[in-house]
Simulated scan of single mutants.
Amino acid sequence: MTASSAEQLSKAAGKTVERVKADAHEAVETAANVSRQAAKVMGEKGEQMKHLEEQFVENCRNYVHDKPVTSLGVAVALGFLLSRLVSTR
Score class of each variant (00 low, 15 high):
S10D: 10
L9W: 09
S71K: 00
F80V: 05
K50W: 09
G46N: 14
S83K: 05
S71H: 00
D23N: 11
V57D: 02
A6S: 15
V41N: 06
V64Q: 04
Y63C: 09
R36Y: 11
T30Y: 01
F56E: 10
A6D: 15
Q37C: 00
S10R: 14
G14R: 07
Q55E: 06
K67A: 06
A77S: 14
E29Y: 09
R89N: 09
R61I: 13
A3I: 14
A31N: 02
T88F: 02
E26C: 05
H25F: 12
M42V: 13
A6I: 15
V41Y: 07
A32E: 13
Q37F: 00
L72V: 08
L9F: 05
L85E: 09
K50D: 14
E44F: 02
M1L: 14
A13E: 07
D23I: 08
M42F: 06
V57T: 03
V28L: 13
T30H: 04
E29F: 08
T88E: 12
R36P: 00
V74T: 05
K21H: 13
A31K: 01
V64W: 01
P68S: 02
Y63W: 08
F80D: 03
E7D: 13
A12K: 10
N62F: 07
T70R: 08
E18Y: 01
M42N: 14
V34P: 00
E26T: 08
Q55V: 03
E58L: 10
V28I: 14
V74L: 14
K15F: 08
E47H: 04
R84F: 12
V57M: 01
H65R: 03
V41C: 02
Q48R: 08
S4G: 03
A3W: 10
D23K: 11
A22D: 07
E7T: 04
T30I: 03
S5W: 13
K40F: 13
E44P: 02
V20Q: 11
L85S: 12
L52N: 00
R84K: 13
S35K: 06
F56W: 05
V86S: 01
A77G: 05
G73H: 12
K67Y: 07
K21S: 14
V76T: 05
A12N: 10
S35A: 14
C60M: 15
T30N: 01
V34M: 02
S4Q: 11
F80P: 00
K15E: 15
L78S: 06
H51V: 10
L78T: 14
A27N: 09
E58C: 10
